[in-house]
């Protein structure tokens, strides 16, 4: 039967096949990448690896400080990015007139933020947070002593927050748009003010959207390396960061360091694979959760 069809419509078969093959190539690469990293890293994927410090000049041991640093960084980042993102999304859906110049400018700015290369955020973090704000803080509060005017986890997190801001805004905006207009009208018709309506009806209805946005932002922030290259990430620290002015280790940076800057790459190969697997699993599971949540929100809109 296939042969028959092939004869009758060889061109169609070819072109449709071409599109199918393209999709399959992409999926195959994705799967190969996953499988290779899982196979390469699974022997390292132990509780001990996750919970112990690197030893022997980082050729042995685990990745606990990197895991911890990444977690701490994304928490601080979320604390900064999520409120900002939610508020901006509220402005765009609730306050701004759809086609006003301001709303369009803000939308353009958000999309621009989303496409600016992440290394530029790193430069900005260095030029703004460290050299401008940090140094300014040092001369204002520290009597010129160097404390804030150098890379640390706070500046890295804030830099990352800026990078992930559009992620939050877009997800929350999408969720806010699924709240039916009728509910807003019902609230307003009961004599609620706009802010009361937002706080009591709109926001509670969009928790899942805020969650999605936060998860996506965390996943993005956990994986990005370029913005923290010179705003706070460290090669190796014997202690965990104890204050905002400390540097931190991060999973992504660890991978980068181990693969390109390490003295004996081959010796640390298992650690590299293990770290990559951990980072991959982390971002992957977060993404899967976010994708499921997002599909649910979309379905709600259709329903």
């Amino acid at each position: 039967m296939i042969l028959k069809r092939f004869k009758r419509d060889a061109k169609g078969f070819f072109f449709e096949g071409l599109t199918l093959v393209s999709a399959l190539i992409i999926i195959t690469i994705l799967i190969v990448m996953l499988v290779v990293i899982i196979i390469g890293g699974k022997s390292m994927f132990t509780w001990e690896f996750l919970t112990s410090f690197p030893t022997e000049g980082m050729t042995q041991g685990g990745i606990f400080p990197a895991l911890f640093g990444t977690a701490l960084m994304v928490i601080i980042m979320s604390i900064a990015a999520v409120p900002f993102g939610v508020i901006t999304a509220i402005y765009l859906t609730e306050y701004a007139k759809e086609n006003s110049v301001i709303a369009r400018s803000i939308r353009f700015a958000v999309r621009t933020l989303a496409v600016i290369p992440s290394i530029i955020f790193g430069l900005f973090g260095l030029g703004f947070f460290i050299k401008f704000v940090g140094t300014g803080m040092d001369s204002a509060f520290m009597g010129g002593q160097l404390k804030w005017g150098q890379p640390n986890i706070l500046w890295a997190s804030l830099t990352m927050a800026l990078l992930t801001l559009p992620v939050v805004i877009v997800s929350v905006e999408e969720a806010l748009k699924t709240i039916p207009r009728e509910l807003r009208e019902a609230s307003l018709a009961l004599g609620a003010t706009k802010w009361q309506t937002i706080r009591r009806v709109v926001l509670p209805g969009s928790y899942s959207g805020i969650m999605t946005g936060t998860i996506l932002a965390v996943s993005r922030g956990a994986g990005e390396v370029a913005p923290i290259l010179f705003t706070g990430a460290a090669y190796y620290l014997a202690t965990l960061p104890g204050s905002l002015s400390d540097q931190f280790m991060s999973l992504g940076y660890h991978i980068y360091i181990m693969t390109t800057q390490s003295a004996n790459v081959d010796q640390t190969l298992p650690i590299q694979f293990g770290t990559t697997l951990v980072l991959l699993l982390l971002t992957f599971s977060l993404n899967i959760v976010a994708i499921i949540l997002r599909y649910r929100i979309r379905r709600r809109r259709i329903a």
Binding site: I90, Y91, A109, K131, L165, K194, W195
Partner: peptide, 30 residues
């Protein structure tokens, strides 16, 4: 509460434009 909320929301939303300007300014400044 409405007045303050609206002020805050508007200014925060406006910041995203400011960020673009700041990013350009500080990268270029250096």
């Amino acid at each position: 509460s409405d007045y303050i909320a609206e002020r805050i929301i508007k200014s925060v939303a406006f910041l995203s434009i400011t960020f673009i300007v700041l990013i350009f300014f500080f990268v270029f400044r250096e």
